[in-house]
Structures are given as C-alpha cells and as structure tokens.
C-alpha cells in the first residue's frame, strides 16, 4: 500500500489494555489552567518508567462546571490502584498547588475512585463538602460531591470521586524518513491531526518519541532497551529493520478511551504524515503475544 508515495508496511501495532481516567482542570485563566495541566502531565510519558501515561487532550472542553477556562488531561495506568495513586499524587502536588485551580472528574464511568475524598485531609479538618444534584450541574447523571479545601489563595475545589474505565494504551506507528528534519515535520503534521480526535492522548514530548524501545536488554537489571533494529547508527552492527534510504525514525504512541478512538487517531495521523521525506510507515508489535489490541495499518487506512 502507498499513500502520497509513502510505503505503508503490512504490519500491525500491538496495544495493551489499560485503565483510563480524565480530569478537567479549571483556573482563572486559560494560561493558569494550562500551567496546572502541564505540571500534572509532567513525567508521564510511559508506564515503564513513570508509572502512568498522562497528557493534555487535544480537544478543549466545551463547558466547565464553574464556567472558567478549562483543560482536559487524560491519565492511563495498568491498574485501578495505580490510577488512584497517580491521580492523588498528581492532583495533590501539581493541580492543588497551582493558583486559582479547581479539578473535576471528566469521565462518566461505573467505577469511581476516591480522589478528593483522600485529598480533603489536606484541609486539616476545615475542608467543606458540597454535594450538588445533577439538576444544578446540568449533566444528567447523579449527584456529585465536591470538596472545598482551604488554601492560601482561597479554596481548592476537587471532586470527591473520579471515573475510571478500561482503555487502550500503546497504539503506535513508526515514521521512517530519509533524514531527521523531514521526519520530524511529518511527525508534527501527524500530531496536529491526531489532537483533533476525541478521547486520545499522545503522551510523549510533543506527542513524539525518538527512543523507541524493545522488550529486554543485555543487562539483567533492565527490562527494556533501545529499539536497535530501528537505530540508523546501528544499521551495520545489528540485524536492522531499516530499508535503504532511511536516515531517521520517529514513533508516535497513542492511548485512548476506546480501541475505535486509538484506531481513528492512528488513521488520521498516518494520513497526515505521508508526505515528502517519509520513506515508509511501520508499527511496533511483539508478535501479538503481549497486547490484546492489534491495529492493522492497511485495514485502518482502507477505512473511509
């Protein structure tokens, strides 16, 4: 298969089942909401080293509970317990600390984790609970409880419980380019398109990862190491997967609330990336043995 002269490898991306949550951060201005969101999304590129994958969602929230500017952040982790720990730590250390911020659940799900209900103890007994009916919040669901925690600029509002549901982590594709500059531009085009898809995040810096990894290492203490088969500088030293003419490889990893959202993000991303300087687009998998979600590139791109 070829798109705009770019060869699409007949392979698939192997993704994993993860748990997902989504929080809505508001503040007095978009800039401060974004500061809090960026802080919360820091050091959250990969579960391998960060314990979770977290990033700002590309689509801006249409409405917020307090009518202030808001930013949506999605967090993925391997278990509900990990989600709860990460949310408590990140909201407590990164959002509550940001001036004027408030933090709301933004995922309607059957399973809900106590987050504000734990953070409330920061109020040292002066925290105040407010439980509002769905008619007040206008969301059509049941009542929601919020905690007002006294802080030095007034109050930090945090929702008592946050929804968690099964999601998909590790959807990916690889951009094999003739040289770095053109490959990076292709990646940027892909990310711009993917950010318009609802319910997905690309957790690496700017959505792009250059240090793709393989399972295992020659060192016993390391369970993941550089994807040597895709490193141009090792073309002559290891069994390389790089075709002739490829001088740089970048990977885009995508996590989503549903397999459909991940597939759609991959589809629009690959289509946007196909352009000058890109030789081939491939995807990472582990022979189908590890992840339960398989995204076949040809199948995705044949849709619509």
């Amino acid at each position: 298969m070829e798109i705009n002269g770019v060869c699409i490898d007949e392979t698939y991306a192997e993704a994993f089942g993860m748990y997902a949550s989504r929080v809505l951060i508001t503040a007095c201005s978009k800039a401060w909401a974004m500061e809090a969101a960026r802080s919360m999304a820091g050091f959250g590129t990969s579960v391998i080293g960060c314990g979770c994958e977290v990033a700002i969602e590309g689509i801006e929230p249409a409405e917020t509970p307090d009518d202030r500017p808001g930013v949506s952040v999605m967090l993925f982790a391997p278990s509900k317990k990990a989600i709860q720990e990460q949310l408590i730590n990140r909201i407590g250390q990164c959002v509550m600390t940001a001036p004027t911020s408030a933090c709301y659940n933004d995922l309607e799900a059957e399973d809900r984790l106590s987050i504000g209900g734990k953070l409330k103890f920061f109020g040292d007994g002066f925290q105040i609970s407010k439980r509002f009916e769905s008619r007040i919040l206008g969301n059509g669901s049941g009542p929601r409880r919020f905690w007002r925690i006294p802080v030095m600029d007034g109050e930090f509002i945090v929702e008592d419980r946050f929804g968690v549901q099964k999601g998909v982590g590790g959807g990916n594709f690889l951009l094999l380019g003739s040289e770095l500059s053109a490959t990076l531009q292709a990646a940027e085009r892909a990310i711009e398109a993917m950010r318009k898809v609802q319910g997905v995040i690309m957790p690496f810096p700017g959505g792009v990862v250059r240090s793709g990894s393989k399972v295992g290492s020659r060192y016993k203490f390391l369970n993941a190491s550089s994807n040597t088969a895709f490193c141009p500088s090792l073309r002559g030293a290891v069994k390389s997967d790089l075709p002739d003419g490829v001088g740089a490889v970048l990977e885009i990893v995508v996590d989503g609330l549903t397999p459909e959202a991940v597939g759609e993000a991959m589809r629009v991303g690959i289509r946007a990336a196909c352009g000058p300087g890109v030789v081939k687009i491939s995807a990472g998998n582990y022979g189908g043995k590890l992840g339960k979600h398989h995204f076949y590139l040809h199948q995705l791109l044949a849709e619509r």
């Binding site: 508001t26 307090d66 007002r148």
Partner: peptide
C-alpha cells in the same frame, strides 16, 4: 469562592 460559580450557574440553568 469557586463553588459559588457552580451554584450560580446551576441556578441560572434552572
């Protein structure tokens, strides 16, 4: 207080 914004918004909707 931010929570008053939520209350006032809800009252407006009602």
């Amino acid at each position: 207080p931010v929570f008053l914004r939520m209350v006032f918004k809800g009252l407006k909707q009602l």
